[in-house]
């Protein structure tokens, strides 16, 4: 059974149609990379899955249960998903440790000590030992994004949603963040990754899905979609990236 299933999802912001009839299913331990130009709907799709945006039509299922029904409590759903934002969005008034633990503590899922122990262990593992008591502003962008990743995985989510997690970083800091994602993938974390990093998509993703103007137009193994795309739109998009030296 798929962990996440998206059925015919449609979403508009006012007059602008952002998602049109998107179908996608993410199996356990699978990593799907969403690629596509800016404004193609990648971020919106991720935000819809985490119920940060309301969809207009269709259904999204988590472990076989519809989560986009108005009767479903969004808080309970979000606690089962981890989300990492492009701009880190750490809480600036809290320490690194507080950032990582506050979700689990306030939701009542973990006792304070338990949450702290788990956070320390994860921070340690991802090279952030000794930074527990620092405010985010004292950290580099790469470190902040790694903290954000730890914050998202600390409660043990069913799946991780990554929204262009390296786009706001200086080029030399991208690697350390991708390394964390790679490790999580190796552990079997189910992931949906919106990304501009084609080489990373190729390396980590099991499936690459190409969004164009709110429609999911092409999907398949990375080798197939990235090397021999069948649609002219996909070819054009990848061609533009090649010209820009990004792929």
């Amino acid at each position: 059974m798929s962990v996440i299933e998206i059925r015919d999802v449609t979403k508009a912001f006012g007059e602008r149609q952002v998602l049109e009839g998107v179908d996608l299913s993410v199996a356990e331990h699978e990593a799907i990379a969403l690629i596509g130009a800016s404004g193609s709907g990648k971020s919106t799709l991720l935000r819809c899955i985490d119920l940060l945006e309301e969809i207009d039509d269709g259904d999204i299922l988590l472990d076989g249960e519809v989560i986009t029904d108005p009767s479903v409590d969004p808080v309970g759903v979000r606690r089962k998903l981890g989300f990492v934002f492009q701009a880190f969005n750490l809480f600036p008034h809290m320490t690194v440790l507080e950032n990582v633990t506050i979700g689990a503590i306030k939701s009542g899922e973990m006792k304070k000590d338990e949450a702290r122990d788990r956070a320390r262990e994860l921070l340690d593992r991802f090279g952030l030992a000794g930074r527990e008591d620092d405010r985010p502003e004292r950290l580099s962008g790469g470190q902040q994004q790694r903290v954000a990743l730890v914050r998202a995985v600390a409660p043990g989510p069913r799946a991780l949603l990554l929204d262009e997690v390296t786009s706001a970083l200086d080029p030399e800091l991208v690697g350390e963040v991708l390394e964390v994602v790679r490790e999580l993938k190796d552990e079997g974390m189910t992931m949906v990754i919106a990304t501009h990093e084609m080489s990373f998509a190729r390396e980590v993703a099991d499936t690459v899905a190409f969004l164009n103007g709110g429609r999911l137009v092409e999907m398949g193994p990375p080798g197939q979609v990235l090397d021999s795309p069948s649609l002219p739109e996909t070819k054009r998009f990848l061609g533009r990236l090649h010209t820009a030296g990004l792929a």
Binding site: R78, F85, R151, A152, P155
Partner: peptide, 28 residues
Amino acid sequence: QTQTDSALAVGMTRIQALRYVVLPQAIR
């Protein structure tokens, strides 16, 4: 608004997001 998004994403309720994330920053 991204601070509220972030608070909701880690599983806080709207009231918790206001209490623990938005208000402390606003008052400061």
